[in-house]
Amino acid sequence: MNHDNYDDNYIRGILNNVKSIAMVGASPVNVRPSYFAFKYLAQRGYDMIPVNPGHVGKNLLDKPFVASLADIGRPVDMVDIFRNSTHIMPVVEEALRLDPLPKVIWMQLGARDDAAAARAEAAGIKVVMNRCPKIEYGRLSSEISWMGVNSRTLSSKRAPMPTQGMRLSLNRTSVGGGETAASDRAAKNKTDVT
């Protein structure tokens, strides 16, 4: 997998197939990016599980926090890691001890650990790094177009009117995502400087 530049079909396949998402590092503070993403993905119908040992006993949008992936007590399709690059490996190791294994490990915008990704991929897990599932879902569904963001997709079908809990079609024609796309160059530049 080329982690500098994901094909839209790879991201689309993941977002279409996963149903449950454990978010490690989810925050109950409503200005944190993890809160934004958690709320959006819940609104789009994903079964969201907040994982953060600092908030056990509280709820995030009516979902109780658990301290660790092991505490979830049921299979999860995807682990979404809202931690800095330096804190990725222990979470991936924890995910690799789950039975059954998650199908996907997703590292948030700005987070990248190639060694951890290689270990997850060796166990048959799909990996996405340095992306936000909210942004990718909004982009591939074109919902993000309301913000003037380049969805890099086209469609001649009637646009949906999103309602609470509604899953949107991600099956649009991809426009870009090659090496010359500015977003991919930017992601790469950021990785290079850290």
């Binding site: 094909d7 839209d8 079909n9 074109s142 177009s145 380049n150 969805s151 086209l154 469609s155 001649s156 079908k157 009637r158 646009a159 949906p160 009117m161 024609t173 991809s174 426009v175 870009g176 090659g178």
Partner: peptide, 25 residues
């Protein structure tokens, strides 16, 4: 698997636009 990518003239006509959700305009 990589889809064919639309060219500049296609983007000039289509990018950002989609039939209206309520009326189909």
């Amino acid at each position: 698997m990589t889809d064919r990518l639309p060219g500049f003239s296609t983007l000039a006509v289509h990018a950002g636009a989609q039939p209206d959700p309520t009326t189909g305009a």
